Simulated assay, not measured.
Amino acid sequence: MHFFCEQCKKEYPVATHSFQCECGGLFRLYQSAMDAKDVHDKVTLGEMPTPLLPRMMDGRRFYFKMEDRQPTGSFKDRGAKRLIGELAHIGIDKVALDTAGNAGAAVAAYAAAAGIACRVYVPDDVSAERVKQIAAYGADIVRVPNGRAHTMAMAQEELGDAYYASHIYNPLFIDGVKSMAYEIYDQLGGTVPDYIFVPIGNGTMLLGLYQGFEEIGRLPHFVGVQSTKCAPVVDAFHGLPRTPYRHTIAETIRVEDPPRMEAILWALRSSQGDAIAVEDGAILTAAKALGERGIYAELTAAAALAGARAFFAEGMPDNYRVVVPIPGSGLKR
């Protein structure tokens, strides 16, 4: 199995420490995980398919993909299992990554299961609950001031002999996330949903879902959702002036400059989708609505629901199948 450059098609070994080609292109897997025998099943935390819960809201039916049921409480476990399983298989014994929380917890947990040393760089304003969870898996934590971009830069500068286990760039991580698309397809009886509302920070969930549905053969309309206080994707998608960054309660999508912006915009436009920004007040209202239906979700999930409610404010056809992922548990707030 190799990585290949999306632009010039040059091949690289999986053990490479960089995920950008000399030509500037990004890597993908040469062979899909869905087509290959999984040779590293021993690296597991007991993960299983997550429920797709139908719930009525505003007189409309939404399907909530319950990724909070994953072993560490977020969808990032899909990518972490795939990535760490392969790294363990080829003999990598040390990894490092930068994260706003969920990816750090997922990679640290699977690294612990595989006996791989893990160092995690986090912005210094990440919630204490997220840092506490990462530390519980035995990872070394480095707090970095001045935001998410500085955290990524420091992780790369101090990589040393560790493998850069990036959930943003690494094709193995995206290859794991795409399994969510196959589950949704099966859970809807072999059909593709009409819309999926995806909260977007670095775009990991969107790119994984896009790759999965592209392999299935039909794309849903993807609608990217961000906070009005940090909406670089929405601005770029609609050709708007850049929104000045402000602190938002949806911390896991608080990414001022998504490194894979071009890929994110390609996925949204190729699916004839859209991008929408919602106020923090609407996110809190959506979180309350989810709780009243038995779903305790992190605020990023509430942002996705707030986006769906705003998008269909004028009504929604009864036969539409609209999926709203619940990326992480409310216990991470």
Rank of each mutant, 00 (worst) to 15 (best):
E183R: 03
R269V: 07
L188C: 10
I283P: 13
R148W: 06
Y210W: 04
G25E: 02
R130S: 08
D140Y: 02
M180F: 14
P220S: 04
F173K: 11
A15F: 10
A289R: 15
L265D: 07
P145R: 13
L26G: 03
C8I: 09
Y296S: 10
Y185L: 04
A33S: 12
V192M: 03
T204V: 07
K81L: 13
E298H: 06
I326D: 00
A304T: 06
G224T: 07
G25L: 01
F213I: 02
V107R: 08
D41N: 03
G160A: 09
G115D: 15
Y195F: 13
G330K: 03
G147K: 04
N146R: 12
G160T: 08
A15I: 06
K37A: 15
V131W: 05
I264D: 09
S166H: 10
A303R: 05
Y169K: 00
V234P: 02
H2P: 05
F311H: 13
Q272N: 13
V14W: 02
H221V: 06
A36I: 02
A313C: 03
G101H: 09
P193R: 13
L268T: 01
E157R: 10
Q272F: 04
L87I: 11
P145E: 13
A15P: 01
G79R: 06
D38I: 02
V225Y: 00
D58W: 04
R246S: 10
G73V: 09
R69Q: 13
M34P: 01
A111I: 05
A105P: 06
A263I: 00
A105H: 12
T16C: 13
A100S: 15
H238G: 05
P49F: 00
E11C: 03
A162L: 08
Y137Q: 14
Y164F: 15
M57R: 02
S271C: 15
K42H: 15
M205I: 14
T228W: 00
G330N: 04
D35F: 02
K94P: 04
Q20V: 13
R61V: 15
K42Y: 12
H238E: 03
K42I: 00
P51R: 13
F312D: 15
A277D: 07
L240E: 11
E183G: 05
H17I: 10
V255D: 07
Y163H: 14
